[in-house]
Nucleic acid binder design. Structure first.
Length: 564
RNA sequence: UGCCCGGUGGUGUAACGGUAGCACAAGUGCCUCUGGAGCAUUUUGUCGAGGUUCAAAUCCUUGCCGGGCAGCCA
């Protein structure tokens, strides 16, 4: 009780920023940036970075830039630029007018390179890439210096300008920083900073035929934008000395601080753009927005909400230790959000006909159903009820296992919001499959209220046959059946661990008629089943739902533990 | 074999020299017109060895384990 006013503990990044603010570093400003390369779609790992960078800016009254790190025209495309902007916005973040491209800085970057050359800190090297690899040395042996390393500055300048003018072929020359070929950090062994690429750039067109490398472009882009904290993932930690070297050599006014954190991993999926691209290109999934993909667009289509994703990113925390998050945490986050917001509705995925023998043949009653018990302001709706209904196949068993509360001969259940019924008999076809269940109802239990003193343990959902809507439902499961698909055995690839049952299409589902006019991305809870969203391929004639996540299923747990 | 980073329950993440806490997962019970939701409750942890200290998850030494780095990718 005495600790209620205690502040929640900060992650190490925010703690660092608090320290910086205390000593008035950067005049108290906090400026971050999210710097995607437009060479693929954003995934949930990027969401963590987005939430971090935009979240920090929000928490410290700073700002966060969206900057496309577009320094490799061979791999980049406007399609990706567009999708990235859409996804960041959808996640709920706003970069205001701080939208930038590294390509905006090509002139400035080129001038920085020239300055470096003039200072004698960069040189044009004509080694082939194979030779350069050779000269670089290994992790345990130091490198040796390029024969071009000690060219006079004027010659370097001339050569570099001619590179820029397109006088040389790709691969024949590069500009390198002159640092230290004996550094234990291979990134400091005279890294390439400019290479010739006669490629069309999605923004600068054919203006350039030399493009800066990441290490050179990134630190200066940060500096130009006045970034205070340049937050990136762990694999760039070893690049930090280089980041600092460039900024120190040219003595720029703004020297941001690079801080690294551990990227997000989730089990049963992959999180590398290369692998996601491969899944798309080789048609292992339908597209980047396939609902099984961990992409933002895929998760959106699957029915995840921005609120759920943000909550997830918040809960996973930030640290420097490698981590693998349980998929169950993600599922918890969507359920938690959708439970509060998704209207409840009844739908039957695997229909079984149920006939109430003592119910009038042509009567249709409109029964009241609560739209969301977690939010009474969502109101109620009318659901039509009549003699012939559909129920879930699973909700009837000829021979009931122990603790089975649903329909079985002689047992009573409640039809949600309708009546108490009793199972009298059932019909099997020649193959032994149950085709009809016959029940009687108690007309005094209208609305589902049992007589005084009587308890009904089981409640099942239903859809009236007459007015039922035919819908398609797509069930999704984890894309991979192995916890860590990146951990491949000899002779296999991550593709060998794909879950063959990650998609199940149910085309004969029945839903209550109120769902006739749903729109793409609307969320619902199908009572007792899970959360579902309307797929974008859905239309008036063919309504398609994607299962976002199933409800927690205590019965399934009891059942499976009993089978063990 | 070089350099850099990390090791806290099953999974994440706090505690910044002073009671190892929180969330998810798992278990149990209560409640319920969703076997949903909710509520209550339990189990499980500081990588090892030394040292400093009244006191170490925290500081030091060392070992072990995990990750990263040798693109004209980012």
């Amino acid at each position: 009780m005495e600790n209620v006013t205690e502040k929640p503990s900060l992650d190490f990044l925010r703690a660092k920023i608090v320290e910086d603010l205390k000593v008035n570093k950067n005049e108290g400003k906090v400026v971050t940036r999210f710097p995607p390369e437009p060479n693929g779609y954003l995934h949930i790992g990027h969401a963590k970075s987005i939430c971090l960078n935009f979240g920090i800016a929000r928490d410290f009254n700073g700002r966060c830039h969206l900057r496309f790190d577009d320094t490799n025209p061979a791999k980049e495309d406007v399609e990706y630029v567009d999708s990235i902007m859409e996804d960041v916005k959808w996640l709920g973040f706003d970069w205001g007018n701080h939208l930038y491209y590294a390509s905006d800085y090509y002139d400035a970057l080129c001038n920085y390179a020239i300055e470096l050359i003039k200072k004698g800190k960069a040189y044009v090297c004509e080694l082939t890439s194979d030779e350069m690899r050779d000269y670089r040395g290994t992790l345990t042996e130091i490198g040796k210096e390029s024969p071009h390393r000690n060219r006079p500055a004027e010659e370097n300048l001339d050569l570099f300008i001619r590179m820029k003018n397109g006088e040389f072929e790709e691969g024949t020359k590069v500009l390198r920083a002159k640092i230290d070929m004996s550094s234990p950090n291979v990134h400091m062994r005279d890294p390439v900073i400019y290479r010739i690429k006669k490629a069309h750039h999605h923004r600068t067109g054919d203006k350039w035929c030399i493009y800066p490398m990441y290490d050179f472009a990134h630190c200066f882009s940060d500096s130009i934008e006045g970034i205070t904290h340049s937050i990136c993932t762990l694999e760039f930690e070893i690049h930090r000395p280089l980041y600092d070297w460039f900024l120190d050599e040219l003595n720029v006014a703004c020297h941001p601080q690079q801080i690294e954190f551990a990227r997000l991993n989730i089990n049963y999926t992959v999180m590398s753009k290369r692998k996601l691209l491969q899944l798309v290109k080789e048609n292992h999934v339908k597209n980047w927005d396939d609902p099984r993909m961990p992409t933002i667009s895929g998760m959106r289509r699957r029915g995840y909400t921005p609120e759920a994703i943000r909550a997830f990113c918040d809960k996973v925390g930030v640290a420097k230790r490698e981590n693998v998050i349980d998929l169950s945490l993600l599922e918890f986050c969507v359920r938690e959000d959708l439970n509060k917001t998704a209207p409840r509705v009844m739908a039957v995925l695997n229909p079984l006909k149920l006939i109430i023998d003592n119910y009038p043949d042509d009567l249709v009653e409109e029964l009241d159903a609560v739209n969301n018990p977690e939010d009474l302001s969502a109101g109620t709706r009318k659901v039509p009820f009549s003699k012939v209904l559909y129920i879930e196949k699973d909700d009837f068993k000829e021979v009931a296992p122990k603790k089975y509360f649903r329909l079985t001969p002689g047992q009573e259940v409640r039809l949600r919001y309708a009546y108490i019924i009793k199972c009298e008999s059932f019909v099997k076809d020649t193959s032994g499959e149950i085709t009809e269940v016959h029940c009687t109802y108690d007309s005094s239990t209208r609305g589902g209220n049992p007589p005084e003193g009587k308890k009904i343990k089981g409640t099942i959902h239903w859809v009236a046959e007459k007015s039922a809507l035919d819908v398609e439902v797509r069930l999704y499961d984890r894309l991979f059946s192995k916890e860590n698909p990146d951990d491949v055995e000899e002779g296999k690839t991550f593709l060998d661990y794909m879950n063959p049952n990650s998609l199940e299409i149910l085309s004969d589902c029945k839903a209550e008629p109120g769902l006739k006019n749903v729109k793409a991305l609307e969320h619902f809870q199908f009572e007792r089943l899970g959360y579902f969203t309307v797929d974008k391929d859905s239309n008036y004639d063919r309504i398609i739902f994607n299962r976002t996540v199933a409800l927690k299923d205590t019965w399934a747990k009891i059942e499976s533990s009993g089978n063990n």
